[in-house]
Simulated assay, not measured.
Amino acid sequence: MPAVSETRVGVLISGRGSNMASLIEAAAQPGYPAEIVTVISNKADAGGLVRAEEAGIDTVVIDHKAHADRASFDAALDAALEEAKVELVCLAGFMRLLTPGFTEKWRGRMINIHPALLPSFRGLHTHERALEAGVKIHGCTVHFVTPEMDVGPIIMQAAVPVLEGDTAELLAARVLAQEHIIYPAALRLICEGRARIEGERVVVDEFEVAERALVAPGI
């Protein structure tokens, strides 16, 4: 059997990197079609850097405060990704707005996970806003990144029930558990060439039954 070609993936973080950890764990499994080759943070004290180093992955810190503007920061970020020969970028709690030039260069090769069912609740504080809105279903979305924030073509979503008496913390924990499932699953689809952008939508080929099912825990 020929060796499986693994896509070289760079992960961008700003904090604890729990979604990064789920990608690292998935990539360590035999036959997974991606290799995490670098983890880059804009904060030197990001907890996710320790987790990446423990897994033997190269880490880089690019302090956004050391750059005069977003464009120069993004140029340094791009240079680090190119140096690591990254083919696909995963944002995992990366709390910086990227410039249109950067997102255009990586269009179709950069994905993000958002803690809401897009197009609802773009931006921050999604769980608080979901509770305030009184929605009965909340969730998370993996999507391709475009210049406009939280708008890119959707690859995969997972839904959870909003329960009576939920707090933002309880709801966030329920959603996070699903994030850790669908982010590695979506990355697999892309790296296997089974997810592609057509117009403004993502088309996925050869779905398995389990992949087609909506991920939603019982109440």
Rank of each mutant, 00 (worst) to 15 (best):
V39F: 01
V39L: 08
I40K: 02
I40R: 04
I40M: 04
S41V: 07
S41P: 07
S41T: 08
S41I: 06
N42T: 10
N42L: 06
N42H: 12
N42A: 05
N42M: 03
N42F: 06
N42S: 14
N42K: 01
N42P: 02
K43N: 14
A44L: 03
A44M: 00
A44T: 06
A44I: 07
D45C: 02
D45Y: 10
D45L: 06
D45F: 13
A46V: 14
A46C: 03
G47Q: 07
G47C: 06
G47Y: 04
G48Q: 05
G48S: 02
G48C: 02
L49Q: 04
L49P: 04
L49E: 03
L49H: 05
L49G: 01
L49K: 02
L49D: 07
V50H: 07
V50N: 08
V50D: 08
R51W: 00
A52C: 05
A52R: 01
A52F: 01
E53V: 04
E53Q: 13
E53G: 01
E53A: 15
E53F: 03
E53W: 02
E54P: 02
E54H: 04
A55S: 07
A55P: 00
A55E: 01
A55Y: 03
A55H: 02
A55Q: 03
G56T: 00
G56D: 03
G56A: 04
I57W: 00
I57T: 00
I57Q: 01
I57S: 02
D58F: 03
D58R: 04
D58K: 03
D58S: 13
D58N: 02
T59A: 06
T59F: 14
T59C: 13
V60Y: 06
V60A: 14
V60S: 10
V60P: 02
V61H: 11
V61M: 15
V61T: 15
V61D: 12
V61W: 08
V61C: 06
V61K: 04
I62M: 06
I62Y: 05
D63H: 10
D63F: 05
D63P: 10
D63I: 02
D63E: 15
H64F: 13
H64I: 10
H64A: 08
H64V: 12
H64S: 09
K65Y: 15
K65H: 15
K65Q: 15
K65R: 15
K65G: 15
A66P: 10
A66R: 15
A66V: 09
H67C: 09
H67W: 08
H67Y: 15
A68M: 06
D69M: 08
D69A: 12
D69L: 09
D69R: 01
D69Q: 04
R70P: 00
R70S: 08
R70K: 10
R70M: 11
R70Q: 11
A71E: 15
A71L: 13
A71W: 07
A71P: 08
A71M: 09
S72V: 12
S72Q: 09
S72P: 12
S72C: 14
F73T: 08
F73D: 08
F73R: 09
F73V: 13
F73L: 12
F73E: 14
D74V: 09
D74H: 05
D74S: 06
D74I: 10
